[in-house]
Design a protein around this nucleic acid. Structure first.
Length: 272
DNA sequence: CAATATGTTTTTCG
DNA sequence: GCGAAAAACATATT
């Protein structure tokens, strides 16, 4: 699931492969994936080059050699990138393909069409209009608690709200609350200073760890809650081992909070 | 084949 | 117009 760490990895991948070469054309299989008219996209990007990138939360912005033409990518649940040369190597579900003059291609892989691509003319204006909060890795502690204090909902949906802090998704919020030892249903407005600091620090810990391991869950430290989720590449076969708290051995609870599947340790994350 | 997964947008209510 | 909560939406996989 492309949350902030996966998007960061894709950003680095795009920077390493696709900058500074003229775009010759763009193939789009399904215009539902576009937030900009297809013709306009073709016209605006023809002969342009990508020159740099910026990520805010789960949004990837790609600057071109025209400062008013910026491409935005959102990877939804399943989006990915693939840079390839031979058209025979075109991956499955590469529904949007940027063709470069070099003969190489950047494929935007959209298995479930939950992904979106389009142009924006200013990143700051875009963030403002979408009420996008500062990125989870750069938000200041003061800004973070200011945004949190306005809310009285359970902490989990508050952390998922991109207007509070940008980049946290379902599994990362569970991991953050587990590391901070805070119950997911605890009201945001009732958190004390220690809990707020623990959550803020856990966000940095979880995100930097995930980026360090290039979002490969199997490599994460053993005391991460991530291992209780059944990923396709989970290293464990033993369902019993999967369901235990990596710190205290208590059986992990699985519930729904804010309509999302939620895992937490009922022994260490207490609602008081 | 119905259930499931999840981020974002839309809707509804107070 | 806003916060909160829930529903709607996008579709492939199991």
């Amino acid at each position: 699931m492309p949350e902030l760490p996966e998007v960061e990895i894709r950003r680095q991948y795009l920077e390493a492969t696709s900058l500074k070469q003229p775009i010759t054309s763009i193939q789009v299989e399904d215009t539902k994936l576009l937030t900009t008219d297809y013709m306009l996209l073709q016209q605006q990007l023809a002969d342009r080059q990508f020159i740099s990138t910026e990520r805010i939360g789960k949004n990837l912005f790609i600057y071109t050699d025209n400062p008013a033409i910026i491409l935005r990518m959102h990877f939804g649940m399943t989006g990915d990138l693939a840079y390839y040369h031979n058209s025979l190597d075109r991956p499955r579900h590469a529904r949007i393909v940027f063709e470069f003059a070099s003969g190489f291609n950047l494929g935007f892989i959209c298995p479930r069409k939950f992904e979106r691509v389009g142009l924006v003319d200013s990143v700051t204006d875009y963030a403002k209009s979408k009420k996008l909060a500062p990125d989870a890795l750069s938000i200041s502690f003061n800004q973070f608690i200011t945004n949190l204090h306005k809310r009285n909902s359970p902490i989990k949906p508050v952390l998922l709200d991109q207007a509070v802090v940008a980049g946290l998704g379902n599994w990362i919020v569970d991991e953050v609350l587990f590391q901070a030892k805070v119950h997911p249903e605890k009201r945001a407005s009732t958190l004390n200073d220690d809990e707020l600091i623990a959550i803020y620090n856990a966000i940095a810990l979880v995100l930097t760890t995930a980026i360090k391991f290039e979002a490969r869950y199997r490599d994460f430290p053993p005391d991460f809650l991530i291992h209780v989720r059944k990923w396709d590449d989970s290293p464990y076969d033993d369902v019993e081992a999967l369901s235990k708290c990596p710190r205290c051995g208590t059986k992990i609870s699985r519930t729904e909070v804010g309509g999302r599947t939620t895992f937490y340790c009922p022994n260490e994350q207490i609602l008081s």
